[in-house]
């Protein structure tokens, strides 16, 4: 998040002072944000801060509510895992496409450091992988939450 802010802020400053912005100044913060969203997705699950319907749930007894929460955790573990798989298929399929703004920067980075693998940073694959990553992280978060709920005794 801090990085996103810094890149956008300085790139726009650059645009108004030097008159030119760097080509990766738009794509990089977008991709960073997508990863940020995926982190936040899991973090928000851990802290129960996702937007959900609570009106019906609130009217139920504590026992039923506990069961519903457990159901929600299990459903989320499964969804997260399925999303991770689908996201993997997605990234594998089109990951070779060049990320236009990042290509030259990545190529330059690769040739200056001599690490050929860095060329990969100029392709969309690593960024598209965010969705798979997010799915996996969400599954883990929900699993942790499930364990936490199972190990704390039901409040009656």
């Amino acid at each position: 998040m801090a990085l996103v802010f810094v890149v956008i802020f300085f790139n726009s400053l650059r645009r108004y002072t030097v008159g030119r912005s760097v080509t990766w100044g738009e794509e990089l913060p977008i991709y960073l944000t997508i990863y940020g969203v995926m982190f936040g997705l899991a973090l928000a699950y851990l802290t129960d801060s996702h937007i959900r319907f609570t009106v019906l749930v609130d009217t139920l007894s504590a026992r039923v509510r506990r069961i519903l929460f457990l159901f929600s955790d299990v459903a989320t573990v499964i969804t997260g895992a399925a999303l991770a798989y689908a996201g993997h298929v997605f990234a594998m399929r089109r990951g070779d496409v060049t990320a236009s703004g990042l290509k030259s920067a990545a190529d330059a980075l690769a040739s200056s450091t001599g690490i050929e693998a860095l060329v990969w940073l100029g392709r969309v694959g690593p960024y598209q992988y965010a969705i798979a990553f997010g799915g996996a992280l969400l599954a883990v978060a929900a699993a942790l939450k499930l364990v936490e709920r199972l190990t704390t005794p039901a409040e009656v």
Binding site: L56, V57, L68, F69, S72, A75, T79, A82
Partner: peptide
Amino acid sequence: LAGVPIAISIVA
């Protein structure tokens, strides 16, 4: 209705 977060319900 079961209180699963909206976004997760949609994706599921």
